[in-house]
Write a protein that binds this DNA or RNA. Structure first.
Lengths: 182, 182
DNA sequence: TTGAAAACTGGCCGATCGGTCAGGATGATG
DNA sequence: CATCATCCTGACCGATCGGCCAGTTTTCAA
């Protein structure tokens, strides 16, 4: 066959997939490399053969969301200020719903996220997004923006039973109430 | 001397004090009993002499906040529904500011808090408070209330440099925007 | 078919964790 | 001074963690 997936990518992908599920269910710190290996049907040594340490596994799990966030930032970057907030609110709710699993994962890593160079880009983009959500440089508005993001992070936690539509609706309402009150 | 503090209470109090600071700075899971013992100027065995395991230390750290929250719940419990939400918002912001350190601590324990009987009361009271903050049984309003609490939890995280007054003002504004929009 | 590169593994290592225990220090009481 | 309960400690334990390495199995192109 010509289009068979190379064994390398097959295993890597499966490890990332199972790691995502486990990180989401038990948290990053509470998940051991052995847990991931068992779930992925390989040995712990194999996981470390494909990934240069446990943080590298986390980085691979977060990568798709990080890429989408980076793209969003790049888009909003070249918008006039007035539109930037509106677009940030709308597209960030989409992003939060799509990557709700990843958002769930991040929770457990937040306290020590500063010391993880693997996810530095994601953190930096999150900070920039906060600025755009705030809509102004006013410190109260900025605080409300971080408040909104934290509320959203918390809301996505263990929200596996909620439908995408419900979650999107809730996030949109909450963000607008906080950031664009009538 | 008649009014000297017994050695027992002295050490216990110091352990709790240092544990609080460490839990707040590094998180519960990332803080070892040895860390607490060193900070408190005693041995790890001493910590375990006074407290029946690490979760018991956490329970002692959370206890004052849990007591205040329980008192708040009891107060709000006997209020008519209309007033309940307003009082809950106002007094919960006070409580959040006063016990901001404790709120900070809880973050790291949330993913596994269900399995800790030591803090079950605190969790249960938090759930009741959510209901009162929502103001109605509408599911959207309840979700917004949990959103608000999560935002507040996140906002209190690593907010040691913020003044009490700023924090109180921010929490009050955010809660009212979310729960009582104009 | 063959041989080298890639993929994979069991076993081991040092470190750290929460927790236990027997016994030493301390201080009040007779 | 002697006694005894309280307070405290160093040493140790079993478990678990992330990570490493020598060697085996699989893959695949020549």
């Amino acid at each position: 066959m010509a289009v068979t997936t190379p064994a390398r990518e097959r295993t890597r992908h499966e490890v990332v997939r199972q790691a995502m599920d486990l990180f989401q269910a038990k948290g990053y710190n509470a998940t051991s490399l052995q847990d991931i290996a068992t779930a992925a049907g390989c040995s712990k040594a194999t996981v470390l053969y494909h990934f240069n340490g446990k943080p590298a596994v986390l980085a691979a799990v977060l990568e798709p969301a990080a890429a989408d966030l980076a793209a969003l930032i790049q888009t909003v970057d070249q918008l006039p200020r007035a539109e930037a907030q509106e677009v940030a609110i709308r597209r960030f709710t989409d992003l939060a719903v799509v990557h709700r699993g990843v958002i769930d994962v991040i929770q457990d890593v937040l306290p020590v996220i500063e010391e993880m160079p693997e996810v530095a880009g994601l953190v930096a983009d999150g900070m920039k997004l906060t600025g755009y959500l705030a809509g102004s440089d006013d410190s109260l508005e900025r605080d409300l923006a971080t408040f909104a993001i934290n509320g959203l992070l918390g809301e996505c936690r263990h929200s596996g039973d909620r439908s995408d539509e419900d979650l999107r609706r809730l996030c949109d309402i909450a963000l607008r109430r906080l950031l664009k009150p009538a």
